[in-house]
Protein backbone atom coordinates (compact mmCIF):
# COMPACT_ATOMS: atom_id res chain seq x y z
CA UNK A 1 0.00 0.00 0.00
CA UNK A 2 1.20 3.49 -0.75
CA UNK A 3 1.92 6.03 1.96
CA UNK A 4 -0.12 9.21 1.70
CA UNK A 5 1.62 10.84 4.65
CA UNK A 6 5.27 10.38 5.50
CA UNK A 7 6.67 12.14 8.54
CA UNK A 8 10.44 11.92 8.84
CA UNK A 9 12.72 13.04 11.67
CA UNK A 10 10.33 15.67 12.98
CA UNK A 11 11.43 17.68 15.98
CA UNK A 12 8.98 19.90 17.84
CA UNK A 13 9.87 22.00 20.82
CA UNK A 14 8.27 24.77 22.78
CA UNK A 15 10.87 26.84 24.54
CA UNK A 16 13.15 24.30 26.18
CA UNK A 17 10.57 21.54 26.28
CA UNK A 18 11.12 19.03 23.48
CA UNK A 19 7.89 17.27 22.50
CA UNK A 20 9.04 15.26 19.48
CA UNK A 21 12.54 14.31 18.50
CA UNK A 22 13.32 12.28 15.41
CA UNK A 23 9.70 11.24 14.95
CA UNK A 24 8.83 9.04 11.93
CA UNK A 25 5.30 8.08 10.92
CA UNK A 26 3.62 6.57 7.86
CA UNK A 27 -0.06 6.80 7.02
CA UNK A 28 -1.22 4.51 4.24
CA UNK A 29 -3.89 5.18 1.66
CA UNK A 30 -7.36 4.17 2.74
CA UNK A 31 -6.50 3.14 6.27
CA UNK A 32 -7.79 4.29 9.62
CA UNK A 33 -4.77 5.06 11.77
CA UNK A 34 -5.17 5.72 15.48
CA UNK A 35 -2.50 7.69 17.29
CA UNK A 36 -2.38 6.89 21.00
CA UNK A 37 -0.11 8.00 23.79
CA UNK A 38 -0.15 9.31 27.34
CA UNK A 39 -1.07 12.87 28.18
CA UNK A 40 1.55 15.33 27.04
CA UNK A 41 3.18 13.04 24.48
CA UNK A 42 2.22 15.47 21.74
CA UNK A 43 -0.55 13.65 19.87
CA UNK A 44 -2.38 16.84 19.03
CA UNK A 45 0.90 18.59 18.25
CA UNK A 46 1.65 15.85 15.71
CA UNK A 47 -1.75 16.36 14.10
CA UNK A 48 -1.22 20.11 14.01
CA UNK A 49 2.21 19.62 12.50
CA UNK A 50 0.85 17.50 9.65
CA UNK A 51 -2.03 19.85 8.83
CA UNK A 52 0.34 22.81 8.85
CA UNK A 53 -0.76 24.67 11.99
CA UNK A 54 2.59 24.09 13.63
CA UNK A 55 5.96 24.32 11.91
CA UNK A 56 8.44 21.74 13.19
CA UNK A 57 11.95 22.80 14.20
CA UNK A 58 13.43 20.04 12.05
CA UNK A 59 12.37 17.18 9.82
CA UNK A 60 10.00 16.82 6.90
CA UNK A 61 6.30 16.16 6.38
CA UNK A 62 5.34 14.87 2.96
CA UNK A 63 1.78 14.38 1.86
CA UNK A 64 0.91 12.76 -1.50
CA UNK A 65 4.66 12.56 -2.10
CA UNK A 66 5.30 16.29 -1.78
CA UNK A 67 7.28 17.91 1.03
CA UNK A 68 4.78 20.31 2.62
CA UNK A 69 7.41 22.39 4.41
CA UNK A 70 9.35 23.15 1.23
CA UNK A 71 6.41 23.96 -1.05
CA UNK A 72 5.44 27.47 -2.12
CA UNK A 73 2.34 28.72 -0.31
CA UNK A 74 -0.12 28.36 -3.20
CA UNK A 75 0.83 24.74 -3.83
CA UNK A 76 0.70 24.00 -0.14
CA UNK A 77 -2.76 25.49 0.22
CA UNK A 78 -3.93 23.35 -2.70
CA UNK A 79 -2.77 20.24 -0.86
CA UNK A 80 -4.18 21.37 2.46
CA UNK A 81 -7.53 21.78 0.75
CA UNK A 82 -7.57 18.00 0.41
CA UNK A 83 -7.53 17.73 4.21
CA UNK A 84 -10.60 17.67 6.39
CA UNK A 85 -9.99 18.40 10.06
CA UNK A 86 -12.34 17.67 12.95
CA UNK A 87 -11.15 19.64 15.96
CA UNK A 88 -11.62 18.34 19.46
CA UNK A 89 -14.34 20.79 20.42
CA UNK A 90 -15.75 21.04 16.91
CA UNK A 91 -14.52 24.62 16.32
CA UNK A 92 -17.74 25.44 14.48
CA UNK A 93 -18.07 29.14 13.71
CA UNK A 94 -20.49 30.27 16.39
CA UNK A 95 -21.89 33.16 14.36
CA UNK A 96 -23.03 30.88 11.51
CA UNK A 97 -25.68 28.18 11.38
CA UNK A 98 -24.59 24.58 10.84
CA UNK A 99 -25.59 24.74 7.17
CA UNK A 100 -23.63 27.98 6.70
CA UNK A 101 -20.64 26.43 8.45
CA UNK A 102 -20.64 23.57 5.96
CA UNK A 103 -21.42 25.80 2.97
CA UNK A 104 -18.61 28.25 3.73
CA UNK A 105 -15.72 26.17 2.29
CA UNK A 106 -17.93 25.22 -0.67
CA UNK A 107 -18.53 28.86 -1.53
CA UNK A 108 -15.00 30.05 -0.74
CA UNK A 109 -12.98 27.25 -2.29
CA UNK A 110 -15.15 25.40 -4.78
CA UNK A 111 -16.68 28.63 -6.10
CA UNK A 112 -20.27 27.44 -5.85
CA UNK A 113 -23.29 29.71 -5.81
CA UNK A 114 -25.12 30.03 -2.50
CA UNK A 115 -28.02 27.83 -3.62
CA UNK A 116 -25.79 25.01 -4.90
CA UNK A 117 -23.67 25.21 -1.76
CA UNK A 118 -26.77 25.00 0.42
CA UNK A 119 -27.91 21.82 -1.38
CA UNK A 120 -24.51 20.17 -1.04
CA UNK A 121 -24.27 21.31 2.59
CA UNK A 122 -27.63 19.66 3.29
CA UNK A 123 -26.27 16.46 1.73
CA UNK A 124 -23.13 16.52 3.92
CA UNK A 125 -25.21 17.22 7.01
CA UNK A 126 -27.34 14.18 6.20
CA UNK A 127 -24.22 12.10 5.47
CA UNK A 128 -22.88 13.01 8.91
CA UNK A 129 -26.07 11.54 10.35
CA UNK A 130 -27.77 14.73 11.49
CA UNK A 131 -31.51 15.32 11.06
CA UNK A 132 -32.47 17.70 8.26
CA UNK A 133 -33.58 20.47 10.64
CA UNK A 134 -30.14 20.61 12.27
CA UNK A 135 -28.87 22.74 9.39
CA UNK A 136 -30.64 25.89 10.47
CA UNK A 137 -29.48 25.68 14.09
CA UNK A 138 -26.57 27.59 15.59
CA UNK A 139 -23.71 25.66 17.22
CA UNK A 140 -24.76 26.94 20.67
CA UNK A 141 -28.09 25.12 20.25
CA UNK A 142 -26.53 21.70 19.59
CA UNK A 143 -25.62 18.89 21.97
CA UNK A 144 -22.06 17.58 22.19
CA UNK A 145 -22.67 14.65 19.85
CA UNK A 146 -24.43 16.84 17.31
CA UNK A 147 -21.55 19.34 17.38
CA UNK A 148 -19.13 16.53 16.51
CA UNK A 149 -21.34 15.44 13.64
CA UNK A 150 -21.77 18.99 12.38
CA UNK A 151 -18.00 19.50 12.55
CA UNK A 152 -17.56 16.24 10.65
CA UNK A 153 -19.96 17.50 7.99
CA UNK A 154 -17.84 20.63 7.65
CA UNK A 155 -14.65 18.58 7.50
CA UNK A 156 -16.21 16.53 4.68
CA UNK A 157 -17.46 19.59 2.80
CA UNK A 158 -14.80 19.59 0.10
CA UNK A 159 -14.66 15.78 -0.17
CA UNK A 160 -11.20 15.54 1.36
CA UNK A 161 -8.79 12.70 0.73
CA UNK A 162 -7.50 12.67 4.28
CA UNK A 163 -9.63 13.16 7.35
CA UNK A 164 -7.94 14.25 10.57
CA UNK A 165 -9.88 13.59 13.76
CA UNK A 166 -8.78 14.93 17.13
CA UNK A 167 -10.43 12.82 19.84
CA UNK A 168 -13.65 12.33 17.86
CA UNK A 169 -15.47 10.35 20.55
CA UNK A 170 -14.28 12.28 23.63
CA UNK A 171 -17.23 13.57 25.61
CA UNK A 172 -19.80 11.40 23.83
CA UNK A 173 -21.95 8.84 25.58
CA UNK A 174 -21.13 5.19 24.73
CA UNK A 175 -24.05 4.87 22.31
CA UNK A 176 -23.18 8.11 20.58
CA UNK A 177 -19.51 7.14 20.47
CA UNK A 178 -20.29 3.74 18.93
CA UNK A 179 -22.53 5.36 16.34
CA UNK A 180 -19.80 7.85 15.53
CA UNK A 181 -17.25 5.04 15.09
CA UNK A 182 -19.65 3.28 12.75
CA UNK A 183 -20.15 6.52 10.82
CA UNK A 184 -16.41 7.02 10.34
CA UNK A 185 -16.07 3.46 9.11
CA UNK A 186 -18.98 3.84 6.68
CA UNK A 187 -17.65 7.10 5.32
CA UNK A 188 -14.16 5.70 4.97
CA UNK A 189 -15.48 2.78 2.95
CA UNK A 190 -17.88 4.87 0.87
CA UNK A 191 -15.68 7.87 0.20
CA UNK A 192 -12.32 6.09 0.19
CA UNK A 193 -10.94 8.37 2.90
CA UNK A 194 -7.69 8.01 4.72
CA UNK A 195 -8.32 8.67 8.39
CA UNK A 196 -5.73 9.96 10.87
CA UNK A 197 -7.23 9.86 14.31
CA UNK A 198 -5.94 10.97 17.70
CA UNK A 199 -7.88 9.06 20.31
CA UNK A 200 -7.99 7.74 23.84
CA UNK A 201 -11.01 5.59 23.22
CA UNK A 202 -10.03 1.92 23.40
CA UNK A 203 -13.37 0.84 21.94
CA UNK A 204 -12.74 2.99 18.89
CA UNK A 205 -9.29 1.51 18.52
CA UNK A 206 -10.56 -2.05 18.73
CA UNK A 207 -13.59 -1.62 16.50
CA UNK A 208 -12.54 0.54 13.59
CA UNK A 209 -8.78 1.09 13.39
CA UNK A 210 -6.57 -0.68 10.90
CA UNK A 211 -3.27 0.34 12.42
CA UNK A 212 -2.14 2.00 15.62
CA UNK A 213 0.77 4.36 16.23
CA UNK A 214 1.99 4.69 19.79
CA UNK A 215 3.66 7.96 20.78
CA UNK A 216 6.13 7.65 23.62
CA UNK A 217 9.65 8.80 24.41
CA UNK A 218 9.26 11.75 21.99
CA UNK A 219 8.80 9.52 18.93
CA UNK A 220 6.54 6.87 17.43
CA UNK A 221 7.42 3.78 19.41
CA UNK A 222 5.59 1.36 17.17
CA UNK A 223 3.29 1.78 14.18
CA UNK A 224 1.58 -1.42 13.12
CA UNK A 225 -1.54 -3.56 13.20
CA UNK A 226 -3.34 -3.69 16.52
CA UNK A 227 -2.33 -7.25 17.46
CA UNK A 228 1.34 -6.47 16.83
CA UNK A 229 1.18 -3.24 18.79
CA UNK A 230 -0.66 -4.86 21.71
CA UNK A 231 2.12 -7.46 22.06
CA UNK A 232 4.91 -4.91 21.83
CA UNK A 233 7.31 -5.08 24.73
CA UNK A 234 6.85 -1.77 26.53
CA UNK A 235 5.49 -1.09 30.00
CA UNK A 236 3.15 1.71 28.94
CA UNK A 237 1.73 -0.25 26.00
CA UNK A 238 1.15 -3.31 28.20
CA UNK A 239 -0.63 -1.15 30.73
CA UNK A 240 -2.68 0.51 27.98
CA UNK A 241 -3.83 -2.52 26.03
CA UNK A 242 -3.82 -5.15 28.77
CA UNK A 243 -5.18 -3.05 31.62
CA UNK A 244 -8.80 -3.66 32.71
CA UNK A 245 -10.27 -1.26 30.16
CA UNK A 246 -8.10 -2.56 27.33
CA UNK A 247 -9.09 -6.16 28.03
CA UNK A 248 -12.77 -5.26 28.16
CA UNK A 249 -12.58 -3.39 24.87
CA UNK A 250 -10.70 -6.26 23.21
CA UNK A 251 -13.35 -8.75 24.24
CA UNK A 252 -16.22 -6.53 23.15
CA UNK A 253 -14.88 -5.82 19.67
CA UNK A 254 -16.26 -7.88 16.79
CA UNK A 255 -13.10 -9.13 15.06
CA UNK A 256 -14.65 -9.10 11.56
CA UNK A 257 -14.66 -5.33 11.52
CA UNK A 258 -10.93 -5.04 11.83
CA UNK A 259 -10.26 -5.93 8.21
CA UNK A 260 -9.54 -2.80 6.17
CA UNK A 261 -12.04 -1.80 3.50
CA UNK A 262 -14.79 -3.94 4.80
CA UNK A 263 -17.56 -3.11 2.38
CA UNK A 264 -20.37 -4.80 4.22
CA UNK A 265 -21.14 -1.48 5.90
CA UNK A 266 -23.08 0.17 3.14
CA UNK A 267 -25.88 1.50 5.32
CA UNK A 268 -25.95 4.56 7.48
CA UNK A 269 -25.01 4.57 11.09
Amino acid sequence: MTNVIEVRGVRNQFGRQVVHDGLDLDVRRGEILSVVGGSGTGKSVLLRTIVGLNRPAAGSVSVFGEDLLGLPTARRVAIERRFGVLFQKGALFSSLTVAENVALPLIEHAGLKAGEAARLAALKIALAGLPANAGEKYPAELSGGMIKRAALARALALDPDILFLDEPTAGLDPIGAAAFDELILTLRDALGLTVFMVTHDLDTIYTITDRVAVLAQKRVLVNDRLDVVADFDDAWIREYFHGPRGRAAAQAAPPAQRAPHNLSHGGQA
Binding site: A118, L123, A132
Partner: peptide, 14 residues
Protein backbone atom coordinates in the same frame (compact mmCIF):
# COMPACT_ATOMS: atom_id res chain seq x y z
CA UNK B 1 -23.58 5.74 -4.44
CA UNK B 2 -25.39 3.83 -1.71
CA UNK B 3 -24.18 6.12 1.04
CA UNK B 4 -25.30 9.25 -0.80
CA UNK B 5 -28.51 7.78 -2.20
CA UNK B 6 -29.44 6.69 1.30
CA UNK B 7 -29.46 10.23 2.66
CA UNK B 8 -30.07 12.51 -0.29
CA UNK B 9 -33.86 12.51 0.05
CA UNK B 10 -33.56 13.20 3.73
CA UNK B 11 -31.83 16.44 2.82
CA UNK B 12 -34.30 18.80 1.15
CA UNK B 13 -32.94 22.30 0.52
CA UNK B 14 -33.96 24.68 3.26
Amino acid sequence: LQAVAGVIDAAPPA
